[in-house]
Design a protein around this nucleic acid. Sequence first.
DNA 1: CTTATTTCGGACAAATTTATCCTAAATAAA
DNA 2: TTTATTTAGGATAAATTTGTCCGAAATAAG
Lengths: 144, 144
Amino acid sequence: MFSKACEYGIKATIYIAVKSMHQERVSLKEIAEEVNSPVAFTAKILQSLAKSGIIDSHKGPTGGFQIEESRIDIIKLHDIVHAIDGDDIFNGCGLGLKQCDARQPCPVHHKFVVIRDNLKIMLQNTSLYELASGLDIGLTHLKR
Amino acid sequence: MFSKACEYGIKATIYIAVKSMHQERVSLKEIAEEVNSPVAFTAKILQSLAKSGIIDSHKGPTGGFQIEESRIDIIKLHDIVHAIDGDDIFNGCGLGLKQCDARQPCPVHHKFVVIRDNLKIMLQNTSLYELASGLDIGLTHLKR
DNA sequence: CTTATTTCGGACAAATTTATCCTAAATAAA
DNA sequence: TTTATTTAGGATAAATTTGTCCGAAATAAG
Ligand code: FES
Ligand code: FES
């Protein structure tokens, strides 16, 4: 469904959000540990999330990653997925036609768009805040 | 969403079904043309679909691929996807945890399973027959 | 039987995704 | 100012997916 990069990116962002809600910055190392992801690869992903403006990064001692607290409930899962995996998953044809076009639909079009749109809506309606809250109170987990 | 192999496999199977409904066998070459897929790669995929028992193959002149007509409305999209992409898409965790487990859910679990289950149900309820019929009467298209 | 045609199957190659390594740049603190 | 720490970014490597090539096996027809 999502790429590995996206999976790591989502988990990392949620973890950063939890810490940010407690006014803490977190280092790459800590994130990779908590998220169970390869450190250097995670660095790349965080770098691109920072460029997309989803997270903030700071160099030097006491540096690390954080998210402005007021933005945590503004940021939606959709934003993270879009930043990393692009919008093929939201608009692409289920059978890989160059363009999904209802006027020249592929055989699965009508059934597929329902699923795809539901996914899109779900991602747009899911805030980073609710994901982070669930993790914070121990209801959900990032590794196992 | 689906792998390239799966996209090609679905399109190829639908095309074979259309031809089979007209009592025609179809060659690899023709399939790859109609489906706009690389010939040799398509061969591999058809080979594995034949091994899975979803399509029938015959060697030699007048050979090719076909599907027993009585099975066309028995075969579901789910069967094709499962044969090619396995069942990660049906049971895997949205964030890549080793196992999707509601008792130790990842942050997106509750929202993700809804989408995943809807996808599964859609694929289980969609017969090859209806996909092939739409193509046969020109309502849908395999390439563009 | 011979030949032409078609799928099978293994080896190989290219492209993409995932992952690592190392140096540079920033920056906080001694 | 020096040092230690942390992210940035480029180069490279490993793994996976996608795609190619070619000879073997089956088989229909002359
Ligand atoms: S054309 Fe294929 S999903 Fe819309
Ligand atoms: S545990 Fe992640 S989707 Fe179920």
